[in-house]
């Protein structure tokens, strides 16, 4: 669906915003782009709807080279690619309905079509009763819902989300992420989701690319990248969300155990403790969800018994470091 081939983008500074990015995003997936501030995330998505042009390399959306499109072609493409923003980008001079109607007006839709479609879109994002309000009268979460309704107005196949939840509190973030996940499932939308928070990627994305200083340092499924990070930049991002913290003082053998999927529900520790006589002290840990699987990550102190056999047994259940 979306393909980047050797994409460079320089703004004339000393180093490029994007330096040779290759990427492939499949139809219908939720694809995350994570990285620190200035990593080039916004630049990357802005290439996808032609708000920026690559300095070199190719950006293909559905097989068309975005940079090669003429202005009319570009406008047609933009109708098939919705976009939402951290600061919402709503028109303060228009009502909620007026905002949602705008892409339809621009696309030349008839009055009747607009009158039928806008209420349906508002209902879809849970704002059926708010059509007559102005954006200033809405909460941040509601504004983002308007942004989403507006982005969906022209029935796009792709939705670009640039830090769509970064201005929202955790509770509101969850509800917006749930809405985005629903849209992906129900409409088969391909979603490109930028964020700097690993937790957000964990909740909604199928695959993710870690961007650092304009380079894609790691790409893979969320489970792979989150549970078995290869690049140091990825580890640093994961550490920020509270993972991988140094365990509190315990002088004895320490292991880090990572469990995937069903293993989370096995009574692993108690069973091994019984078999080997080793007691486990939980120094740090977390059981959580990925988009559609679960994971557990525990830092264990081993006490007494046959520790070598205990470690071997743990290794059969999950990853041990």
């Amino acid at each position: 669906m979306i393909r980047l081939e050797g994409v460079h983008k320089a703004f004339g500074g000393t180093h490029a915003a994007l330096a040779g990015v290759d990427l492939e995003i499949a139809r219908g997936e939720v694809f995350g782009i994570i990285g620190r501030s200035g990593a080039g995330k916004s630049t990357l998505v802005r290439l996808l709807n032609g708000l920026e042009r690559p300095t070199s390399g190719r950006v293909l959306v559905d097989g068309t080279d975005v940079a090669a499109l003429d202005p009319a072609g570009l406008r047609a493409l933009r109708r098939r690619v919705g976009m939402i923003f951290q600061n919402f980008g709503l028109l303060s001079s228009r009502t909620v309905s007026g905002n949602v109607a705008l892409p339809l007006r621009i696309a030349g839709a008839s009055k009747a079509e607009i009158a039928a479609k806008v209420p349906a879109l508002l209902a879809r994002v849970g704002l059926a009763d708010h059509g007559g309000k102005y954006p200033a009268q809405l909460s941040g979460g509601q504004k983002q819902r308007v942004g989403i309704a507006r982005a969906l107005a022209t029935d796009p196949e792709i939705l670009l989300c640039d830090e769509a939840t970064s201005a929202l509190d955790p509770e509101t973030t969850r509800s917006i992420l749930a809405l985005i996940a629903d849209l992906n499932r129900e409409l088969g939308l391909t979603i490109v989701f930028i964020t700097h928070e690993m937790d957000v990627v964990r909740q909604v994305c199928d695959r993710v690319v870690v961007l650092h200083a304009g380079r894609a340092v790691e790409t893979g499924t969320v489970a792979d990248v989150f549970l078995r990070p290869q690049a140091s930049e990825t580890r640093a991002l994961i550490d920020e969300s509270g993972e991988h913290a140094e365990p509190i003082g315990f002088d004895g053998p320490i292991v880090r155990l990572t469990l995937h999927g069903g293993a989370v529900l096995d009574p692993v520790l108690t069973r091994i403790a019984r078999d080997t006589g080793t007691d486990f002290i939980i120094l740090d840990g977390r059981i959580g969800r990925l988009k559609d699987t679960s994971f557990g990550r525990l830092t264990l102190g081993l006490l007494g018994g046959d520790t070598a056999r205990a470690i071997a047994a743990l290794r059969e259940k999950g990853d041990v470091e």
Binding site: N49, L51, P71, L74, R75, A76, L77, R78, R79, V81, G82, M83, F85, Q86, N87, F88, G89, L90, L91, S92, L102, P103, I106, A107, G147, R150, T154, L160
Partner: peptide
């Protein structure tokens, strides 16, 4: 006028006239 707003309208496929 908010840059984000302008960008959002461009991303809808607006002409300069729009």
């Amino acid at each position: 006028v908010d840059r984000n707003t302008v960008e959002a309208v461009q991303a809808m496929g607006a002409t300069t006239r729009d």
